[in-house]
Design a protein around this nucleic acid. Structure first.
Lengths: 234, 234
DNA sequence: TCGCGATGTAAACACCGTTCGCTGCTTGGT
DNA sequence: ACCAAGCAGCGAACGGTGTTTACATCGCGA
C-alpha cells in the first residue's frame, strides 16, 4: 500500500467537499431538485468537472444514499449501545426511538433512502444500498436474539414455515426460531410504517405534535412481543 | 345546471385523455421522469397546449395523485364489501390484503401518493390529497368500530390519553374509546410499513416471493387486536 | 526533464418546463 | 344569420437541466 500522494489527498478532499455540498443542497431542496450545476457553482467548479468524481447525477445520489444509510445505522447503534447494561427492553426502545428520531429530523435523507424508487432500477443484491439496508436491520436483530435467549420474547402461537424466513433466522443466529426472525421483521416494518407516515407528513391531519402519539405506538409495538421498557425487567 | 355544450364535452374528453396518457407514462418511467413534452407528443399536441388544461406539471401530478388515492380507496372498499355477510375479521383481512395488493401491483402510483414528498410542499389540510388520505383510512375504520361493538377487539391494557387521538376517535364514531382509534391508526401504519417495504423493493434481499411472508404478517397484525380470519368467528 | 495521466474548463447538445403572441374555431347574443 | 368574445391549440423562444467533447493545465513517476 503506497503512501497517499498529494494528488490523492486533494482528490479525497474534493470528493468529500462535493458530497458535503450536495448533502446540504439535498436538505434544502430535496433529492428531486438537486442540481449538479448548482453544486458545481457552490464549489466554484464547472459542471463538467464533477464528472471526474461521479459518472452521473445518479452516481452522486447513490453515494449520498449509502452515506445516509450509514448515518441512520450509526444513530440506531449509538442509541442501542448508549447504556449496554440496561435492560434489553429499554435498549430496544431506545433503538426504535432513534430510528424514528433520525427520520423525523432528516426527512429529506430518509426520503432519499426509503422513498419512491426509480422504476427501472433494481438495487443489486450485493450493491452498497442492499448492504446498508441489512445493516440497519442488523442493528435491531441482536436485541431480539438477546431477549429470546432470556426467554422474554412472546411468540405467536403458530407461524407458517417460510423458506425465506428460515434463511433469515439462520443468518441472524444459529438455531434461532423463524418466529423470532418474523418478530424482527415485524417490528422493523411496523416501526417503518409509523415513521414513514410521520416523517412524510401523512399524519399531519391528526395534529401538529405527533411525537407523543409516536412514542405511544412504539410502546404498543414492544408490548406485542412481550417487552415493556422502563420497568426494570418487564 | 346548463346542458354540457359540445366544447365542454370535448374539453372533458381531452382532459381525460391527458390523464390517461400521463398515467401510462407514469407507470412506465415513474413520476420523476414524467415529461410534459412526451405526454403532449403522445397526444399529438404541442407542449404548450397542455397548459390549457393544467397550470403546471405539478398540477397534473396532483390530479394523478388524487386519482390514484381514489383508486386505492376503491380497491380497499370493494374488497371490504365483497361479502358483506362475512365475519368482520375476514372482511378486515380482505381490506388489508387489498391495500397491499394494490400497492404491489401499482408501485409507481403507490410511490406517487406515499413516496418522497416535495420538501417545501405541505398539503393543505382541506386539499384534495388530505381528503383522499383520510378516505383511505376511513375505509378501514368502520370494521374496527364493528368489531369493537361486537366486543371482539382486544385492547391494550393502558393507553395514555392524547388529545389528537381523542379527537380522531370522536370523529370516527360517537363514544368510541381512544384505544380503538389507536388500533385503527396502529394497524394502518403497520400495514403501511410492510407494504412500503415490499412495494419499493426493500425486502427483495429476503427472496423473490414475499407474498406469503406478507400474508403471514397481515395475519399476525390482526391476531394482535384479537381477530382471527377464516375461523367462522375467531 | 520528459511524458503521461489526472484535473479542470469552455462550448456545445439535447432535453426539460414554461411563457408569449398569434391563428382559428366554437359559442352565445343580437 | 351574423358578429364579437372567448377558448383551444400552435410555433417560437427563454432559461434551466444533465451530459459529452475537445482542449488546456498541472502533478507525478520514470
Amino acid at each position: 500500500m503506497p503512501a497517499p500522494t498529494r494528488r490523492d489527498r486533494l482528490r479525497a478532499e474534493t470528493l468529500d467537499e462535493i458530497k458535503t455540498v450536495s448533502l446540504s443542497q439535498l436538505r434544502e431542496v430535496g433529492a428531486a431538485q438537486l442540481s449538479l450545476r448548482a453544486v458545481a457553482a457552490a464549489l466554484g467548479m464547472s459542471p463538467a468537472g464533477l464528472y471526474r468524481y461521479f459518472d452521473s447525477r445518479d452516481a452522486l445520489l447513490t453515494a449520498l444514499i449509502t452515506d445516509a444509510f450509514d448515518r441512520l445505522a450509526d444513530a440506531v447503534e449509538r442509541a442501542r449501545d448508549a447504556d449496554p447494561a440496561a435492560d434489553v427492553a429499554d435498549r430496544l426502545f431506545a433503538a426504535l426511538a432513534a430510528y424514528r428520531r433520525w427520520a423525523v429530523e432528516h426527512p429529506q435523507e430518509f426520503g432519499l433512502i426509503y422513498g419512491t424508487p426509480v422504476p427501472g432500477y433494481a438495487a443489486p443484491p450485493d450493491g452498497p444500498t442492499s448492504v446498508a439496508t441489512r445493516r440497519v436491520g442488523g442493528a435491531f436483530a441482536p436485541l431480539f436474539v438477546e431477549a429470546w435467549q432470556q426467554g422474554r420474547l412472546r411468540q405467536p402461537d403458530e407461524i407458517a414455515p417460510d423458506p425465506a424466513l428460515a434463511r433469515y433466522a439462520a443468518e441472524l443466529h444459529p438455531g434461532l426460531p423463524p418466529a423470532v426472525a418474523a418478530a424482527v421483521l415485524g417490528v422493523w416494518t411496523r416501526l417503518h410504517g409509523l415513521v414513514v407516515f410521520e416523517a412524510f407528513g401523512h399524519l399531519r391531519w391528526l395534529g401538529h405534535d405527533t411525537a407523543a402519539l409516536a412514542e405511544q405506538q412504539l410502546l404498543l409495538l414492544l408490548a406485542e412481543i412481550g417487552l415493556r421498557p422502563g420497568s426494570g425487567a418487564g
